[in-house]
Amino acid sequence: MGLEQLINRGDVWRGPGMLRSSASASRSTGHLQLDRMLPGGWPRAELIELLYDQPGIGELQLLLPLLCAAEAPGWLMWVDPPLLPCASTLHAQGLPLERMLVVHTRTTKERLWTMEQALKSGCCTVVLGWLPTVDTTALRRLQLAVAEGGNWGLVMRPRASRQHSSPAPWRLLLEPEEDARALSVTLFKRKGGWALPRCRMPLSQRSWREVQPEPSVNSVPQARLRGEPELRLVGGGA
């Protein structure tokens, strides 16, 4: 049997070659390095898992390019974010707030149901969901729902769930770097390839330099003053 025939039979796994064809169905993460690790960006119609423990490591920076590029009628749904997304920040970053729905549920069951409905419906371009430890069946349902809806579905889970198996084809571990100027990403499960080693993604917007605190809030402000009426001496002119 010739090589050509073997390949045409379709039961031979060809590794990363197959991913290139699906690159058109991806959207950039905003990081060239990460785009190379993933098939050109966040893959469409496949469940993506991001594992991290505490907010503040730059996790939203990875998602913003995807959220900002969502086409007009589709919604961006946030299911049970652990903290309040800051409206003015997201607006300034170019996120279409009028299409961003924040949903709060009471139980894990309701949360999974909401995500499943949103993913299946096909009218939410991106569905972000924060999940506690859930069983494999629940994730399998989400994976099927996202495949049916054909849009982007991302679940955020604690780092401890790395130990448990998951039906999600893409699993990323996010960890902060100590100097806070970068985020380290480990793609430890991917479709059509082995796990990739830890990789450092620089966060461009974090170019801050250390300062010392002002002695007191009541001191004469060297800082810019916001919201306070400007005092101006009036009258007494010659």
């Binding site: 729905l101 409905q117 009218c123």
Partner: peptide, 27 residues
């Protein structure tokens, strides 16, 4: 071919979760 219109999804979510569970944020 989305299986159902956005309005249908919205109504489904409000029916199960209640009106106050869904919202948008505006600065």
């Amino acid at each position: 071919l989305p299986a159902d219109a956005p309005a249908q999804l919205l109504s489904r979510l409000t029916s199960r979760l209640g009106e106050q569970a869904l919202g948008r944020l505006v600065p």
